[in-house]
Design a protein around this nucleic acid. Structure first.
Length: 333
DNA sequence: GCGACAG
DNA sequence: ATCTTGTCGC
């Protein structure tokens, strides 16, 4: 049963459409715009775009302020002075802040694209299997994405033999990345590239028995991180591995090398924190993507640790993608 | 001081 | 994730 991936919205176009709805004499906030996009968690990205985009002659981005009424950052050009523009439109600025209760615009019209993506994640979580691995994997793949300075993504795939830790095969794929990084929406940024890479891997007959992904699996607000997406999209066992905890809670006190502790969310164990080496106390976080359980995911990753913080397939995929991204044009060699 | 927290 | 100089440590 194939999975239809959702159309990836042009969030930048959606955001500009929204802020152009704010009329002179009114203001909005970074968070309100994010909410109109479908999720307040995008507020920081809204702020980045407002600060760094190309201003059109009639750009209304000076009408975006912080949630407490303070003006927030603005394009550095003095002619685009935020307070002066607001005053010219009849919005009083006192002590560097506006009166939100009086001027806040609250009638955005839009289809809330992030809310639709969230619903897709929720339905995907229901399709993911937590059944244990059926057989001992003979090959383990790892995928990671790096970015070039001009916004292209470079995805690397590496196959490792678990017994020896040897790299058996590797390749890369690259393409422009449009969707921004917004916490908990990583899959919509990197999945198109990873699916393209994985399809090429399948065509050339180099699919591994299990795939490690640099990102969360079930350890996700909607139980559907990028490892879950990739596993369900191509129906194969995947495991998510991160260097930082995305959500949930875990007791790390006294965690010893190669020991693991459950990560809990709403009383459910959705993954494991695993301390990889004696050298560092910083754990990695492992969670099932698809067709594996928490214990199995943790065991697979533990068996691939060779004194580095990351398991071998991800360590090599990270190095390869980063090297190719930094050197501009690249190949698998 | 409070909420968020992957890449 | 990327942008980045020198600096600290094994």
């Amino acid at each position: 049963m194939s999975v239809v991936l959702p159309d990836i919205p042009d969030l930048g176009a959606c955001l500009r459409d929204l802020w152009h709805q704010v009329p002179p004499g009114c203001v909005t906030t970074y968070g309100d715009l994010a909410e109109a996009l479908g999720d307040r968690i995008a507020a920081r990205w809204v702020g980045q775009v407002a600060l760094r985009h190309d201003h059109s002659a009639d750009c209304p981005c000076h009408r975006i302020v912080r949630a407490d009424g303070s003006l927030g950052n603005y394009a550095t050009n003095a002619e685009r002075d935020k307070a002066r523009r607001l005053r010219a439109e009849g919005v009083a600025v006192r002590d560097g802040a506006v009166d939100l209760a009086r001027h806040r615009f609250a009638r955005f019209v839009g289809d809330r694209p992030l809310a639709a993506l969230r619903r897709f994640q929720e339905s995907l979580a229901d399709r993911a299997s937590l059944a244990p691995l059926s057989a001992e994997p003979k090959t383990i793949g790892g995928v990671d994405v790096s970015y070039t300075s001009d916004g292209e993504g470079v995805a690397a795939y590496v196959v490792v033999e678990p017994a020896s830790g040897d790299v058996l095969w590797k390749t890369i794929a690259r393409r422009p990345i449009r969707f921004p990084y917004i916490t908990s929406y990583l899959s919509f940024r990197e999945l198109p590239l990873l699916v393209e890479l994985l399809d090429e891997v399948d065509r050339t007959g180099h699919a591994a028995d299990v795939l490690l992904v640099d990102g969360s699996g079930r350890l996700h607000h909607r139980r559907a991180g990028i490892a879950t997406h990739l596993g369900v999209a191509r129906d194969r066992p995947t495991i998510g591995v991160t260097k930082k905890l995305l959500c949930g809670s875990v007791d790390l006190k006294g965690l010893e090398p190669r020991e693991s502790r459950p990560v809990l969310l709403d009383g459910e164990s959705i993954g494991a924190a695993l301390r990889p080496t004696a050298g560092s106390r910083r754990p990695i976080f492992v969670s099932p993507g698809h067709r594996i359980d928490v214990a199995g995911a943790e065991r697979v990753v533990r068996d691939l640790l060779c004194g580095r913080r990351l398991p071998e397939p991800l360590y090599w995929a990270d190095r390869l993608s980063r090297q190719v991204a930094r050197s501009g044009r690249g190949s698998a060699e």
